[in-house]
Simulated assay, not measured.
Amino acid sequence: MPTAATIRSLGRIDDATATRIADHWNAAYPVMREIATARITAYRAQISNKAWQVDPVHPHADVLRAHTLTEAQLVRRLKGVEVLRRDLGQLDRGTHRACTQSPGGFNVLAAFTSVRNLLTVAGLGDRGLAPVYRLAAALAEAADELHREWVASTAAESGSSK
């Protein structure tokens, strides 16, 4: 469960923004975890049931085959959602590492990417998404601010090196 302090530990985020992100994260995380777990369970069931196999004598077999995921596609989607759920859990615990050389913590840009990815796997039948969208908006604003700061510092560095 991230706090404003854990969110500020790896980035140039002000207290108000960090507090807002922490509040939105803590409201949205249970929903995000539930959605990811439901997708994992569904993909595992489809793989177990060999959902890619279509009865060749079915009157609409060609149409069904055209709109049915292959085994490889199902496995790839399963792995993607498993990684997403792991990343969300690490962000929640403050142990996420953007790369092997980085310290563990809550990274705003990694969180924004993970939340966006979660929203792509969420379906119309998923309930309770309002806090996830509020979190996505707060992370988008923080990411925009970090990007503005990076552009300004890069411009200042390139201007001072001339």
Rank of each mutant, 00 (worst) to 15 (best):
Val54Asn: 01
Asp55Pro: 00
Pro56Ser: 06
Pro56Val: 00
Val57Cys: 05
His58Ser: 01
Pro59Ser: 05
His60Ile: 08
His60Trp: 07
His60Lys: 06
Ala61Val: 09
Asp62Val: 03
Asp62Phe: 05
Val63Met: 06
Leu64Gly: 01
Arg65Thr: 05
Arg65Glu: 00
Ala66Leu: 03
His67Tyr: 12
His67Cys: 04
Thr68Val: 00
Thr68Ser: 02
Leu69Val: 08
Leu69Ala: 12
Thr70Lys: 04
Glu71Ser: 05
Glu71Thr: 07
Glu71Lys: 08
Glu71Met: 07
Leu74Trp: 09
Val75Asn: 05
Val75Glu: 09
Val75Cys: 00
Val75Gln: 06
Arg76Phe: 12
Arg76Pro: 00
Arg76Trp: 09
Arg76Gln: 09
Arg77Cys: 04
Arg77Pro: 01
Leu78Gln: 06
Leu78Cys: 03
Lys79Glu: 08
Gly80Tyr: 13
Val81Cys: 02
Val81Tyr: 00
Val83Ile: 13
Val83Phe: 14
Leu84Gln: 01
Arg85Asn: 10
Arg85Met: 05
Arg86Ala: 10
Arg86Gln: 12
Asp87Val: 13
Asp87Phe: 06
Asp87Pro: 03
Leu88Met: 07
Leu88Pro: 01
Gly89Phe: 07
Gln90Ser: 10
Leu91Ser: 02
Leu91Thr: 09
Asp92Ser: 14
Asp92Leu: 12
Arg93Asp: 12
Arg93Gln: 15
Gly94Pro: 01
Thr95Pro: 00
His96Thr: 03
His96Gln: 10
Ala98Thr: 15
Ala98Gln: 13
Cys99Phe: 13
Cys99Ser: 13
Gln101Ser: 10
Gln101Ile: 11
Gln101Arg: 14
Ser102Asn: 12
Ser102Gln: 15
Pro103Val: 11
Gly104Thr: 06
Gly104Asp: 03
Gly105Thr: 03
Phe106Leu: 11
Asn107Pro: 00
Asn107Met: 09
Val108Tyr: 01
Leu109Trp: 11
Leu109Ala: 15
Leu109Tyr: 13
Ala110Ser: 15
Val115Asn: 07
Val115Cys: 11
Arg116Asp: 15
Arg116His: 13
Asn117Asp: 12
Asn117Pro: 02
Leu118Gly: 03
Leu119Arg: 06
Val121Glu: 07
Ala122Met: 02
Leu124Asn: 14
Gly125Ser: 11
Gly125Met: 08
Gly125Thr: 12
Asp126Arg: 08
Asp126His: 12
Arg127Ile: 08
Gly128Arg: 09
Gly128Met: 08
Gly128Ala: 03
Ala130Thr: 08
Pro131Met: 02
Val132Tyr: 09
Val132Glu: 00
Tyr133Pro: 03
Leu135Ile: 05
Ala136Asp: 14
